[in-house]
Design a binder for these strands. Sequence first.
RNA 1: GGGGCUGUAGCUCAGUUGGUUAGAGUGCCGGUCUGUCACACCGGAGGUCGCGGGUUCGAGUCCCGUCAGCCCCGCCA
Length: 582
Amino acid sequence: MAGELRAEHVGTRVRLAGWVHRRRDLGGLVFIGLRDRKGVVQVSCDPDVLSEAAMEGARRLGSEVVVAVEGEVVARPPEAVNPDMETGAIEVKAEAIAQLAPAETPPILVAYGADEELSSEELRLRYRFLDLRRPEMQRNLVLRHRIFQSIRRTLDELEFIDVETPMLTRPTPEGARDYLVPSRVSPGEFYALPQSPQLYKQILMVAGFDRYFQIARCLRDEDLRADRQPEFTQLDLEMSFVSEEDVWTAIETVMVAVWRDVAGRTVEQPFLRMPFRDAMERYGCDKPDLRIAWELRDLSEVLRESEFRIFRGAVESGGRVRGFRVPGGAQLSRKALDELDKVAQSGGAPGALWTKLSGSGAQGGFGPKLAEPELAAVRERLEALDGDLIVVIAGADDLANPALDALRRHLGSVMGAVEEGDRFLWVTEFPLFEREPESDDPVPSHHPFTGLNLEDLDKLEHDPLSVRSRAYDLVYNGSELGSGSIRINEPNLQRRVLAVLGIGPEEAQRKFGFLLEAFKYGAPPHGGFAIGLDRVVMHLAGASSLREVIAFPKTTAARALMEGAPAPMADKDLKELGIKLS
RNA sequence: GGGGCUGUAGCUCAGUUGGUUAGAGUGCCGGUCUGUCACACCGGAGGUCGCGGGUUCGAGUCCCGUCAGCCCCGCCA
């Protein structure tokens, strides 16, 4: 193909087909960049070779016209070699050029020059067929393909079976909002598009497929973000007769293979593991970015008697004072330090407290307000040195944690303290329940079928929030890639968990009766995992939005600009579905 | 549901304190050009200043509303 031609092909005759990338008309000679999936090659049109009419035709070839070229691969004259181009040593001497399809002047560029800005994302999505011709987008989608191939290859070797599950499913009351599909033959009733194959894969375990996987499309009707699309692709898997270690090993094997196959990077196995409780204590976050080495320390003990009201007050009212040291951070400008308040506020705290350390004590911020021994104790506790910045948040953990996490990430990036590398981490033992803010009732932190640590079994009814689950997340460089758990396979325990959630037998029957029924007939112990593959591709592509690695993504308002979805329906069509708009 | 940024030529952008004829680069059209590679040079066409309303003698510019795109909070078992 055009983009694959190299010096070794000199002398061969080729017939190429592709798109006109750019045309350079020198009056006599005409050069055409011919682009196909593999890249761009220069086609030279020389009046000594081509007829007058053929030259005239070549002059008129506009951008993105589809052409076929026949000719010989020749070495370029030494002074005309282009070292910036993969095919720059050679060119194709055209002997015949045929236009296969015309092209209007494209509304957005495909062939961007070095200093030209990309068109707006709105236009790129509107004219996605042109945007996807760009080599960067082609590269991203090829990368995606290779990742998927690597996953399938690895899981096949591990004897996982790929099973498809329905797209038209039963609406689920819990979790994200469902996308609904009206049933024509059952007016007034609806299918839901799957949020994930969760219940089906558990039933496949009961059905004896002890190693299942699927690269499954999942749909959730929630608001979008740069890293959240309404339809996304998960690697979903489930295994029977296993414990956490088996699931982790399987996922690690897949990830190590992907990183090796598509990026040529070596990732150490096993991945680091850290209980949820430790992650929150050391990083203030359940998905810490381990590329930043700094860890949080509790300073409450040394500051509980402090004259400085904010510290003493926080400890007296049951909160804590925690912080971390930023090596070399004393050099930060006043402006950079003022910004810390905003960062902390974005994390939910009233503001950030800081001080700079030097040989003569602490400058600025809270430092001068501390008694000498207190400052010394803080320094010692943080193992801080002269020239460091100390950043502290005082208050209740649920406000301080997000703020400390935001500050750690922000300062890590400002100070250039984010190390290179691939830091995978299993965060384990998530709480089984969290408190719903409005009602104070426990709600599942993962889903209601998540298994629990049997050491905490006796606390299930009287102290549910302290029960540790067997759920785990996979974190990569501070970003959550996926989550999973060992499930409950015992009907009695499942009933107890549902009861804590306020779901009685009747309601349970109505909502997930088919799963509970399946469990009556011999459910093996099982567990699994699901990984957001779009995010995996995004990380490996070095992209900052999922839209760069999905062929046809939706906008922030969940609209498809190219095809125009969603779209209104005619009354006649709605009537057939038994739907009346208000 | 809330907060922020953006919207001016096909595309990327500039546009001062509200002032008379809204600019640049690129693309497009025409011309010159035999080694270019974002070809170069000369000339030309191209505008519902997102849309609606208001203030004003006068609005791209100020105010209100609205639409669209992007980022974030809520939400995402």
